[in-house]
Design a protein around this nucleic acid. Sequence first.
DNA 1: TTGTAAGCGTTATCAT
DNA 2: ATGATAACGCTTACAA
Lengths: 347, 347
Amino acid sequence: MYEPITIKDIAKALGLSTSTVSRALRGSHEISADTKKLVVEYAEQFNYRPNPIALSLKERRSRSIGVVVCEIANNYFSQAINGIESVAYNRGYHVIISQSHESYEREIVNVEHLASRSVDGLLVSLSAETDKIDHFKNLHDKGFPIVFFDRITDEIETHKVVADNYQGAYNATQHLIDAGYRKIAHLSSAAHLSISIERMNGYKAALADNKISFNESYIKNCNHGGMIYKELEDAVRSLINSKDKPTAIFSAGDKLTVSCLLALNKFKVKVPDDIALVGFSNSPLVELMNPSLTVVKQPAFEMGQKAIELLINLIESKRPVTEFEKVVLQTEIFERNSSIPKAKPKK
Amino acid sequence: MYEPITIKDIAKALGLSTSTVSRALRGSHEISADTKKLVVEYAEQFNYRPNPIALSLKERRSRSIGVVVCEIANNYFSQAINGIESVAYNRGYHVIISQSHESYEREIVNVEHLASRSVDGLLVSLSAETDKIDHFKNLHDKGFPIVFFDRITDEIETHKVVADNYQGAYNATQHLIDAGYRKIAHLSSAAHLSISIERMNGYKAALADNKISFNESYIKNCNHGGMIYKELEDAVRSLINSKDKPTAIFSAGDKLTVSCLLALNKFKVKVPDDIALVGFSNSPLVELMNPSLTVVKQPAFEMGQKAIELLINLIESKRPVTEFEKVVLQTEIFERNSSIPKAKPKK
DNA sequence: TTGTAAGCGTTATCAT
DNA sequence: ATGATAACGCTTACAA
């Protein structure tokens, strides 16, 4: 069995009390240089490490934070997690990641598990299935620190970190309109998610500002994480087979964009010659995949960083916080070298 | 502040002792039905949850295991982690993931951090940079449970879970040879990694079995996670520009295969018409990406499951383990519908 | 059937 | 400068 050395062991070995050892290790001023040296060297030699669990119990905090996301196999989230980690590491926090796989039930279980005192706070991006948020509201009402990012909810008053989805979607749509396209389809994730609503609004606003009427049949929502490729393929098929088929697509998500590209490829529809495409994506691949693909990139890493900073502030603030920040970070649009060709004049 | 309810609170409120409450909550037989009911209902009402940290301290175990991988933004690893999670969840363990980003230093820090008693065991896949493994050896020698998977080391006697990389590579290479290709390049990750060595051996064996001489200049190793696209592009460029250029490529890794496909695409080299490609990949995309791409898929999910099962057995076994398993799971080869065309006759 | 007390590893508050 | 003790939340001998 693995039995690591404790302060007690050191005390016994050196004929000191545990308190003396503890103080020596923490470099207290009230310990003689000799004793300090003795203890520190012994600890060094036997590779003493304070037991973080005992510390957690004493300090009533675990110095770990929980991350609740739908999926880590997603460029946006893995980049956001990298941002989270980078800050956590420096501020002495562990990060515990849990995946909901877009399931409401699973999200609840994860949150319960994490929040029952094994983490000091939660960083949350809602699952696609989640439409009730009592499991967060209850915790938050009891004063448990929660920060939402990306897929947020308006029903809880706390810090939130989001990309400017409205503007990103507006720019993406405007980009297509500028290139002469007017029949622009919109692929998005579950309709009730904050990100979907904001992106839809940006899309609609760009259409409206250009006096293009909104066409309901151009909107395709895909809900489930696991089946996304199949769902997307169906959506794309129905778009390209429709009578008034779109000349361009705006896909509002990482997996959506990649899957759309794949589906189009499968159907032998060339991008951008047959149909133009602008999409949200954080994939390092998608930028390379199609040199004519204009991409809206979310500041995922920075969002993760900002979110955990706010969370740690929340956790470490002595007094209740009254003012909640909603941080909105700008998306970036990468217009590819060869850009999108002008739309062909209508026949 | 968030102050969850404790056994002490319940005891005080109900005029009982903490031990009675504790026993009632755990459904002990030596507690009267009345008391039990009283306690359980009170606990229910106030949403009592045992403090996992206190439990950890008492039981001298955290019921959490640490996962040390290079990168979660990798199809193989995210699938393996899903497998790990699926078992952990059922067996009552938390999973703490840490990424080395292929850095030796970072790996050491992560392991130190995790092992100093915040996890009960470690699931490890070595970073590409790691060539010394003292940080694991020290722990293992002290009896700390460690299971290696995927990128393993021979220097530590413990359970290991790997794919049959040799056979997978052999099959991939043979697949190309069967289609008539004889000039087969091999793209792989850091040369000293166990997976690279095994895959290389499989590749070499297939060549030898078919009386094809080994060509050193056909071997390209890529080391660093972060710069992999650039490295790959350079490797591919040098291959297609070499005087005795290969007619086929066997890429031995997920990112390698995708990046290779992208690089070839960028250089306007058509797969499989200009050059054939067979690659290891667990990407759900790559299968769709190029219908002529034959793919060797690792049983990532199952590997994760098996690895954590072994680890939990190790953790929960009362007596020292003397026999260590090396589990080898078979890879699957997916020959695409349109398959690889026969190589053109040499000019 | 229930209560008391010790212990898990650590630190803070008192002594001495 | 150092030691004894209590406390963090929980479980479990041991008493009652």
